[in-house]
Nucleic acid binder design. Structure first.
Lengths: 349, 349
DNA sequence: GTTAGCACTCAATTGTACCGAGTGCTAGCC
DNA sequence: GGCTAGCACTCGGTACAATTGAGTGCTAAC
């Protein structure tokens, strides 16, 4: 009660305690069962009896790394225990088969950026058996390459805007007056003159004239700049949500997690939040969403030509296989960066 | 064994049998429990004793409408039993609250078609507590209003095509030669001359010259016409997949169903198949996918200005609340048609 | 044709005993 | 002083039997 021996406040543990903790965590990840002192003691490199392990476990429990479901059961890692485990994990290497799987995928993938990202998310979830998340960053900073107003019919026009990052956005206009082809063409010309080279963050000077073309230009610019800062253009691709069903016990947990995944905005903000806090793994309550308190989330930022371009992530139970999952996420993120970056081809073959 | 009394082959039942069957089905839908003879007997308008009900049930079981989990349990409807029930359901009316919910939604909804459909799917799943599916038909028959080649950089061009149904499609081109702005503009002009007014099913005569512009035109047309007939442009929006978790007992079933839902092509073909067979409800094995054999699927086609434009659907357990669900799907489908059809506004306000 | 009565079946529940994995503590050992 | 063998104790899980009760099928009488 009074004096503790060596490391009081530091989060560093005794070598032996660390070994024990790691043994408990990895065995629990394997078996999903409470881990007892004897199986830890027999676990290879601990030359010490179960009794000793036990007393160390008591201490680890007092310090919050382990917990006991009930008196006569083994120990389970707490979030803090997992955290220690993850922090002291050396970077894993991917199996050769998986490396090949990734390379093959990126060698053969076709289609537009969105298609590639969607398939990437499927790949990642198949590789890991966890639910995967691929987030493509907003194009708020991309400049406009082209803006064109297309006449659907007299009362419906479509503003089609192409950005320098290759994204295309459409906005419907429904003016109260009739519009003909020529008016559209003229509006397109003025829009191009006005918008090309600007970003969505640039303020532009719209014409104040009262004619129809000016009116359309104003409407178009307004529609374009009206992007909700929330829906912001991030695209999210979620793959393998069926894995949620086998990652968690308890239907209620499954429902909660699925229900979070349905809200893409939440997912985006979770990932963004982790990136901004510099976290690559969020364990249990660390992610800030109560319904996800039995989940762990792994993210790996994707950086293309030095710029943040999004992230890939994995969501699994706290008892997930961190090393494998982190290695997979990392590898896929690097491949993505290479695929879209620099001198490489942009999307299509 | 020899003679049966009245209706031998017809799928029509005795009035009393029908009443009993309906009582069993609706009580089982309410309780998710096998239904016994006595609770059917006491169920209102059957002026008959449990014993009589029992002997009728034996006969219903022989004819395949009911099944018994085990000897001393009540009866459960078979798929055939549900089918009879559904076929003899008079059209339900939606609750006032729900009618309001739908009207409010469509009065306030903003954004492009895709956004509206996505939100519609969320609406439908929230109203019914089932997983919803919204399918927007392909634009194979829509004609091209505009085709433009935009220069991303010297080696990357984006072909942006606008169709008469308001859809916008992009295709990346990566020619092996450098392309400048003027080449792009000229290509765009030729593409427009060539493509405007055609559909993707129209064959077009591409130029056979060897200059860069002609090359680009050929590439662009090829990319445009290369649409997989499968991925065909149908958009699918799935809402409320978390409801899968509380619709089914058994993690394995949940996993299977989610895993089907992940494969959008499967979902589309399921819906298309049902539409082409003129089915509005597929119960259990009727839907043709083994993993969905404990599911029922409801679809309601969406017809805009007389043309098939897609469908809305609901997926739940075979013991779903058919009347409510069908009413909801029907109402939403009608509102969608009105929202996008005729003189109404196209998408935006 | 209907039904009351009855014997029967079988899942679900309850109670009991037991096993064993795992613990915490302590006394003795190195 | 740290480690460990030994031991009493805890408590979830399992196995088994007894009991309950919802529900059936059959039959004889109305």
């Amino acid at each position: 009660m009074a004096r503790r021996a060596t490391k009081p406040a530091s989060d560093d543990l005794d070598v032996r305690k660390a070994t024990i903790l790691e043994a408990v965590v990895s065995e629990h990840i394997d078996t999903n069962q409470p881990v007892g002192s004897s199986s830890v003691a027999s676990s290879a490199d601990i030359g010490v009896s179960p009794a000793t392990v036990r007393s160390e476990m008591v201490s680890l429990e007092r310090e919050g790394y382990l917990a006991q479901p009930h008196t006569s059961a083994g120990r389970i890692p707490t979030d803090k225990g997992y955290r220690y485990f993850v922090d002291h994990l050396e970077n894993g290497v991917l199996g050769v088969a998986q490396q090949h799987q990734i390379s093959d995928f990126f060698a053969n993938v076709r289609g537009e950026v969105e298609d590639v990202l969607e398939q990437t998310s499927t790949l990642l979830s198949q590789m890991t058996s966890y639910t995967s998340v691929v987030v493509a960053a907003t194009h708020a900073h991309a400049s406009i390459l082209s803006a064109q107003l297309v006449n659907i019919d007299a009362h419906h026009q479509l503003l089609v805007t192409v950005f320098s990052d290759g994204s295309v956005v459409k906005h419907s206009l429904t003016p109260s007056f009739d519009v003909d082809y020529e008016t559209c063409a003229e509006t397109s010309r003025q829009l191009n003159a006005l918008l090309i080279g600007t970003t969505l963050e640039t303020a532009v000077q719209v014409p104040s004239r009262q004619d129809h073309v000016a009116q359309l230009v104003r409407d178009a610019v307004a529609a374009l700049h009206a992007q909700q800062p929330t829906a912001d253009g991030e695209k999210v691709f979620i793959g393998g949500s069926s894995h949620v069903a086998d990652s968690f016990d308890g239907v209620e947990t499954v429902r909660k997690v699925l229900s979070i995944l349905e809200q893409e905005l939440l997912v985006v903000s979770l990932v963004q939040d982790m990136l901004s806090r510099g976290l690559s793994v969020a364990i249990g309550t660390e992610n800030g969403f109560e319904p996800l308190s039995t989940c762990a989330v792994i993210v790996a930022p994707v950086t293309i030509d030095g710029l943040p371009a999004g992230a890939v992530g994995l969501l699994g139970p706290t008892r997930m296989k961190y090393q494998e999952a982190m290695a997979a996420a990392g590898a896929v993120s690097r491949h993505l960066a290479r695929h879209f970056g620099g001198d490489e081809e942009h999307a299509n073959h």
